[in-house]
Design a protein around this nucleic acid. Structure first.
Lengths: 171, 171
DNA sequence: GAGGATGACTTGAAACTTCAAGTAAGACGA
DNA sequence: TCGTCTTACTTGAAGTTTCAAGTCATCCTC
């Protein structure tokens, strides 16, 4: 099975007669997009599977615990955590409840402003994170950094950085 | 809110005393990883939202229709489609059923070998794809290609290509 | 300082994905 | 040619995410 073969229709030129003909992708751009998309999808899957298998955490759960562990008091508002993890508040609220049920996190209203809710990493949650981290980091290194030279790594970072303003929009 | 701030614990050095100290990420690697991860997450979200909003298709649904449209007879085995779209067979089977219910795809056993099932794009499905494609491609162009110079685009492609062997593993 | 607006969640239901079996067709060995 | 094995799905239930309201605290205006 040739895994490189990804549908061109939907990306390349010649799809029909639109009122305003869009700027279709050129062959080399299409190639780049296929590569980028495939690598992103495979990377996400691989990291998620490793975490789930070895630590019983989804990628988002790991990311939430890691985000909390990095804050003073191991505490963060749900709304900040939602931005940090690029997930909707509703999704996060459900997820925090499940982490709470597992004893990895607890919830408290902000004492200074009752509209906010803080999520707080418990000692158990921190312990789980510490157990999960080495395997996760090892895989990131193996999949992302080991294959690249220093120059390539810097070029990758530069290119991705230039996408961020457009992706962040007017935030 | 500083959206750049992503937890370092879980990635950077100094997490404790493991039996075998893992190869933690260096500061510059960590920076690259944060950038890459953030950009990937935002890009996926942005493209998915545009498709859902403007065409009522999830990213995977679009990808499935595009994959089919690219095949002779607009037909592909579910197992091939699963590899192409990097999704599990079970997920795909459910998704194809829903697309079937919406009349965008139909299912047929392979006439030559009854173990295989073919998914076939219907005229309605093709029409939906043709309607969805311009907006999607426009956004890919705007978010990925407009911000990059030709040199940067080629560097990005090169770096991502070098990750693929590791990501594909022993396939 | 009452009354409505705003922001930050929370909740329940619907949609979707994952997990664990189950089914069925063809290959293969005895 | 019979039984077993493998492959390619399919299915139902459990778990997760999304969607559409709902709640509640604070702010803002008159």
């Amino acid at each position: 099975m040739n895994i490189q073969v990804i549908g061109e229709l939907g990306y390349a030129a010649g799809m029909g007669s639109e009122a305003v003909e869009p700027r279709w992708l050129q062959a080399d751009e299409l190639e780049t997009w296929k590569t980028l998309q495939l690598a992103m999808a495979l990377l996400t899957t691989a990291l998620g599977e490793q975490l789930q298998r070895d630590s019983g955490l989804s990628f988002l759960e790991y990311y939430v615990l890691a985000g909390l562990s990095d804050q003073p008091e191991h505490t963060m508002r749900l709304s900040s955590l939602a931005i940090l993890t690029n997930s909707e508040l509703s999704r996060l609220s459900h997820l925090i409840r499940r982490l709470e049920d597992r004893g990895l996190v607890r919830r408290e209203p902000d004492p200074n402003d009752g509209r906010f809710t803080n999520a707080i990493l418990t000692p158990d949650g921190h312990a789980e994170l510490v157990k999960a981290a080495p395997g996760h980091v090892e895989l990131v290194r193996k999949l992302v950094f080991d294959p690249l030279t220093g120059t390539e790594r810097r070029a990758l970072q530069k290119a991705m950085s230039k996408l961020l303003p457009g992706l962040l929009g007017d935030c």
